[in-house]
Amino acid sequence: MSSGQAIFTDGPGTAPRRPGLFSRMWKQRADYLYVLPAIIVMLIVIGYPIYYTIDLSFSRTPTTLKLSDKTFVGLQNYVAILTSPNFWKVTWQTLVWTVLSTIFAFGLGLGAALSLHREFAGRAFMRGLLLIPWVISAVAASYVWKWLYHSDFGAIGALMVQIGVTDEPINFIDNTRTSLYALIVVNVWKEFSFAMIMLMAGLQTVPESLLRAAQVDGANAWQRFWHVTWPHLSGVSMVTILLLVVQNFNSFIIPFVMTGGGPAGSTHIWITHIYEIAFQRQNWGAGAAYAVILFILMMILGIFYVRALTRGDATRAGT
């Protein structure tokens, strides 16, 4: 069912043929003039770095910082990356990190939003409290969590010993099997309030009368959620999930501060890996090539994001 059909049932005739892109641009040339300063600034601060990164990705750079001495090597950097076992390991870790973080942050955010949506004493306080992870500095939070996880002084280990789960504190971070998951917990804690805020805004759009109608029609709480609330949240959920995916794919601070990618590279995700290659090993060409691949992936996600946003507009315009 396309919403476009609904619009046209009201008006007779067909839509006039759209003129070509360039003739439309020419007609609106004054408008382009107004945004020209912004376009120029963006070309300088965004366009040029992108161009330069792409340029670098086809080059080998000397170990000195003199980038002008780079030599063109074609696709060599890309080939090297795609054939290195490290690439697939980091990609897998990035996927695990992104998917798990997104699922749990969204799920927890949805739960928090639904609990905060009903009236109860102290609701404003709880809302403020649950927002803290989102507004707190990621670096500070990472350091705090690092200490919480610490095997000798950490509260988490101590607590687990106290309640008798283990005999001695587990070292979550310095263990290649658990480190990535320990960091995902931190990331979920940091991000779920973002999902919560988005979904709380979405919940405001659910008409009270629809919920009442469903109540009178005999729907229980779960049925009301599934038949009334959830369909109203699908648009904002789509946008929230896409934003979370992009955000998680681009994560840097938590893994960098807490483990720096270690131990044994077990917490490296793309961005930390790129950072290590480019800025610590001074391998600019390979780092740039990594960044270009990431950029392409991000642009694909970006297309879905814009689609999700504009689809919402079309639905609203159709009603």
Partner: peptide, 26 residues
Amino acid sequence: IAMVFQNYALYPNKTVFKNLAFPLQM
């Protein structure tokens, strides 16, 4: 009891048939 609301409160994502069927399904 059955209720009719000012803004009709029809389920926007359901067809007319499913709107009518909803109280019976419940």
